[in-house]
Design a protein around this nucleic acid. Sequence first.
DNA 1: AAGCTATACTTGTATTTGCAAGTTTTGTAA
DNA 2: TTACAAAACTTGCAAATACAAGTATAGCTT
Lengths: 148, 148
Amino acid sequence: MTGNRSEDHGQAPGFGFLIQRLARILDARMKGELAAVGLDFKLFPNLMVLGQQDGINQREIGQKLDFPEYFTSRAIDALVEAGLAERRADPGSRRAVLVFLTAAGRAKALELQTIVARVNGEFLDGLSPAERRTTLDVLRRLTTATEP
Amino acid sequence: MTGNRSEDHGQAPGFGFLIQRLARILDARMKGELAAVGLDFKLFPNLMVLGQQDGINQREIGQKLDFPEYFTSRAIDALVEAGLAERRADPGSRRAVLVFLTAAGRAKALELQTIVARVNGEFLDGLSPAERRTTLDVLRRLTTATEP
DNA sequence: AAGCTATACTTGTATTTGCAAGTTTTGTAA
DNA sequence: TTACAAAACTTGCAAATACAAGTATAGCTT
């Protein structure tokens, strides 16, 4: 039997904790925004990538997002199901498929980009230009440091 | 039939994307570190909180982490099951339980804090002191901005 | 003191996720 | 030309997660 009630050491939240929390806040925020325009949150990352470049295969999509392949596979299923994307045979390889946006998908991707830009802007709004630069620079370095 | 293959507009990854990606990198990193010392990743956030202060109720734990209550409920189940924590009646309220660490839990929490501090340190290692200060400051502001 | 609302927590169940194992195609090498 | 390994993708199934509904207690109001 232990438990001499430990005092609150009131530690300032650490780096990892802050990142995780911010990630969840961003997620919740985007979920709300997307629901407002009738867009399924789980389609969001893949639709975003395809909005920037389509006609690429699933492996390439996954690499851009740094998501596992099975995830891309199912996400594209959902995009196709929703009529936003279509798979076409890759003329260069019979085991790969190229993913294209449909007209509807292209329109949705456009909307999406607007929303993402706005939300990002709102988050960065309270920062000074120097803070913004430093923060983005740091984030870019930290997210690429571990990659080969 | 649409899909005139759109060009790669090679946009720099946005703020939200970078945060999400970094969050996943951190998760994976911690998962590895914890596995190495035989600690279940899903216990991690709650054990961390209890390491700083125990003898609080589940609602309070959840608030510190900003996690929903059902999550805390099950996480404490798991901690109890693992012999790291115990629930005791709250003398001030019969509907609340106070959660205390056991001796084993206290030891694990200590280990955990060491690991977390080290991992955070490693991530921040490549940053200049000024960058570190700015980054942490910005993260703190962004994570508290939305709270009432 | 009866009824109403809020707090603190738990649980049933449907959906999501993640891993590992599967398929088919391609490239390489004996 | 057969064999073997890797690439590109899919899928079955166990585990994790989320939502909503459930319990029990507390406080408040009239």
